[in-house]
Amino acid sequence: MGNNILAITIGAILVNNFVLSKILGICPFLGVSKKLETALGMSGAVIFVMTLASLVTSLIYNYVLSKTFTIGGVVIKLAFLKILVFIVVIAALVQVVEIILQKFSPPLYKALGIFLPLITTNCAVLGAAELSVKAGHSVIEATIFGTCSAIGFALALVLFASLRERLDLAKVPAPFQGTAIALVTAGILAMVFMGFSGLV
């Protein structure tokens, strides 16, 4: 069990980094990485949402969707509904959390700000739930996987935002300015992360 969790942790953060190796969650990776400050806000929100979402979706999958039951002599398994159910549940969950946060912790609500509703439908959040199902994780493993994937996302985002802040001050040839050089940088960063393969 302990070994398995260590493997999940290192695997999710470094080896199979969501952004740089699985190419999930690219929209916020490029969208909110212009400033380190917003990148940190986004990272916090992603870690928060992905942990919660992984916990709830794995509960639903392990205790409802993966079970077979018989109605009127027909054996029914609702596992094929998982994407639909996951995305609806995640969206509703984030909405509820947002309302509660606004009431009880306005500072945190302000800090997470627009990022909280934005990442509701992010593919990285759904990806964490899907991959957990595919890997046959238990509820605890799935939650840890979700958190660590989000930490991996945060790591990539913060690294990339720092790089882009430096890029702003560099002399970039005209054809490469803006998103072009950012994508080239992202590619090089992804190659760097390839160095972790084989670690687990």
Partner: peptide
């Protein structure tokens, strides 16, 4: 039955 169950389940959810 499967279709009806799925629809009912989703609607209920």
């Amino acid at each position: 039955t499967l279709i009806i169950t799925a629809v009912l389940f989703t609607a209920g959810l």
